[in-house]
Amino acid sequence: MTVDPLSEPAQARRRTIKVFLGSGLLASFASFIYPVLRYLIPPPVADLGGDEIVASKLSELKPNSAKIFRFGSHPGLLIMNSDGTYRALSATCTHLGCTVQYRSDLRQIWCACHNGIYDLNGRNVSGPPPRPLAVFDVHLRGDEIVVSRKREA
């Protein structure tokens, strides 16, 4: 221990500086490091990416039925045909933006709002819809049905 040659008030001032600088630096570094550490830990919700989504599990759909899934910021319609094949389309009607549904009795896609009808290829076959529905790619991965945007050829 060296004896401090400084006077009492100077010592007090030195202590104040120490407190301010020391705790300030410590606290500020903590407030910088903490968010960064939290940021580094990946969140539990995995990011699947914008052009691909798991629309359903294999067991969820029966032949000749369909379900609505979320695709990005729009609803999508996944249909299982009677022969066991899958089809995925945009579920937003091209007329006024209602959500379309699969009619197992008609084997067609139907918009309840103004009786618009699309075939299973998304083509607008009757009623007011001015354009076909966008069609997505479907493939199976394990027991998951994965829907992705159509790749441009």
Binding site: V19, L21, S23, G24, A30
Partner: peptide, 8 residues
């Protein structure tokens, strides 16, 4: 914390 460092 930043204020304390500045004062310090």
């Amino acid at each position: 914390a930043i204020g304390m460092v500045l004062v310090g």
